[in-house]
Simulated assay, not measured.
Amino acid sequence: MDTTTTPFRIDIPQADLDDLHDRLAGTRWPHPVPGRSDRRDFSRGIPQPYLRELAEHWRDGFDWRAQEARLNALDQVTTVVDGQTVHAVHVRSANPQAMPLVLCHGWPGSFVEYQALVPLLADDFHVVIPSPPGFGFSTPLSGTGWEPARTAEAYAEVMTRLGYARFSVHGSDIGSGIAGLLAARHPDRVIATHVACEQRILAMVGDKFPFPDGLSDDEVAQIDHVRATVAADRGYLEMHNHRPDTIGPALTDSPVALLAWVVEKFKAHGDARTPDETVDRDQLLTGVSLYWFTRAGASSAQLYYEGEHSGIDYFAFSPTVPAGWAVFDTHPLARRALDPWRAIGHWSEFAEGGHFPAMDATDLLADDIRTFLRGRS
């Protein structure tokens, strides 16, 4: 088995950039629906006036080459694990005592999600950001069966090849499940796990988590309200879980379809701001561009299908590996509902941020990771 790692630089062919521009210019837009002119009204999904603004900026105002140069400032490698090409950002700290730290992202994230976080962590950590199979430059997929547990095993192998016997892990979204699986399967190697989430995780109460004892009727109603809100946003999840091959061609052939599918997920819960008022517009479009150029819109959805049909336990955190949670855009019932036994040693809550704290609460997340991991070895 070839265990080498190969330095990697991004160099998207100009023909791909030209093709993207032409496709955006030739978008066949739906007929506008009378009464749907408010660019901030996401009640039926991403509003067309707002989507048109983003598409026009992507076509005429966004500079991929400038963003590509910024991404290439981060050292990157590829390696082949279990027949699958795996891409990873690998930024070594100048500090010889630095702790290796794996940052695990989910969908529709990418290593771009952590771009601003890396320099804030580089004094204390050797930072590794793998792309799951089917995401970013970990494409194309080598075959079926790349569910989160197998992905966690691939990450452990990547860390071995980079020379790290032990390491800590941070994750958000499905990346938090990968982080937990790493700890559960390699408790001798994982120093600690840190996960980030936001108040919508309360929707898992009554499903993945039991309702805690002693809640009042009003408190149950508050959780049910979050559950109902999240249920309205589950369309993409059901499609990924059960019919990724149906949505895949649209996400590969139409940049505006991909843009709508991804950017809607950056609409912060209960926030009047548009996604690009919550996170940096060009960073947002850099992530979408990465999905477009690598055709990962289709292949990344497969991770959900594989996970849904694998029977794995996404919450298989190791009882012996220290765990920390950071809850952004928090809810008053967050810890009472999710950790009523106070079993999680490090628990932080923030009013700011949302589902992508590495992008919209970068300093808070960096400080919380450092605080939790300080002094561990």
Rank of each mutant, 00 (worst) to 15 (best):
T278S: 12
V279S: 02
V279Y: 01
V279D: 00
R281C: 10
R281Y: 10
Q283H: 14
L284M: 14
L285A: 09
L285I: 13
L285C: 11
L285P: 05
T286Y: 12
T286V: 08
T286E: 05
G287I: 10
G287D: 13
V288M: 02
V288T: 10
V288L: 08
S289W: 08
S289G: 07
S289P: 00
L290S: 00
L290M: 09
L290Q: 05
Y291G: 02
W292T: 09
F293M: 12
T294N: 00
A296Y: 07
A296F: 03
A296W: 11
G297T: 08
S299H: 01
S299R: 02
S300T: 15
A301Q: 03
A301W: 10
A301Y: 10
Q302A: 12
L303Q: 13
L303M: 15
Y304D: 08
Y305R: 15
Y305F: 15
Y305W: 15
E306L: 14
G307C: 08
G307H: 11
G307S: 12
E308L: 09
S310V: 11
G311E: 10
D313M: 09
Y314Q: 13
F315W: 15
F315D: 09
F317Y: 07
F317R: 06
S318Y: 08
P319N: 13
P319Q: 15
P319C: 14
P319T: 12
P319E: 14
T320H: 12
V321P: 04
P322H: 06
P322Q: 13
A323F: 07
A323W: 00
G324I: 03
G324N: 07
W325R: 07
W325H: 03
A326R: 02
A326I: 06
V327G: 02
V327M: 05
F328G: 01
F328I: 00
D329M: 04
T330M: 01
T330E: 00
T330P: 00
H331V: 05
P332T: 01
P332Q: 07
L333Q: 05
R335V: 03
R336T: 15
A337C: 14
L338K: 04
L338C: 08
D339P: 04
